[in-house]
């Protein structure tokens, strides 16, 4: 008798547990407003990334086409995988002094691991991470970017 009781108890418990699970999924089925996925290319316009999102490395330039990079190369040294190459030139100032200046700031997005050490260690806050995350290109070479703009100069320090 006990076995028969247990037999039906098993069936009852099994059906109950199945019904509990079905209630959860069934409830979501009838709640289409609970949909959490986003329609990505359509919502591109209003897609707001978090301000700290590490998208890609950029060098901000002001309206006078000036950046803050002195070409010291600390970021290059700190980069764990050789993503950054800083090329400098020696410029001679009118008063005869020799001064190192940035020639090309080469950033290989394909190698970047977004550890953030370059931005953290930069003494003059010349580089930041932008929020742009759409990196897909057809050619690997396009991932190698020169961050400083054509003809840009070092921003003069406020006297």
């Amino acid at each position: 008798m006990r076995e028969i009781y247990n037999y039906f108890k098993t069936i009852f418990f099994a059906l109950k547990s199945l019904w509990t699970g079905m209630k959860v999924t069934g409830a979501y089925f009838f709640k289409p407003w609970k949909i959490v996925t986003q329609q990505y290319p359509e919502n591109r316009e209003k897609l707001q990334m978090f301000e700290r999102t590490k998208g890609e490395l950029v060098m901000p330039h002001n309206e006078k086409n000036e950046h803050q990079c002195t070409g010291c190369g600390i970021c290059e040294m700190n980069c764990p995988n050789g993503t950054i190459i800083v090329k400098t030139v020696i410029n001679e100032t009118p008063d005869g002094k020799k001064k190192k200046a940035l020639d090309k700031y080469i950033y290989n997005l394909g190698m970047c691991t977004f550890c953030g050490l370059c931005v953290k260690t930069c003494p003059s806050d010349a580089i930041v991470f932008s929020n742009k995350f759409e990196h897909a290109v057809f050619n690997k070479n396009k991932l190698v970017k020169t961050l400083n703009k054509e003809g840009s100069t070092l921003k003069k320090r406020a006297e």
Partner: peptide
């Protein structure tokens, strides 16, 4: 993402504290 800037592999800690 809001605090560390990345979602999966954050690299948020550094010797001596935090990155930000």
């Amino acid at each position: 993402e809001e605090t560390t800037g990345s979602r999966l592999i954050q690299s948020y800690y550094c010797p001596g504290g935090l990155m930000a």
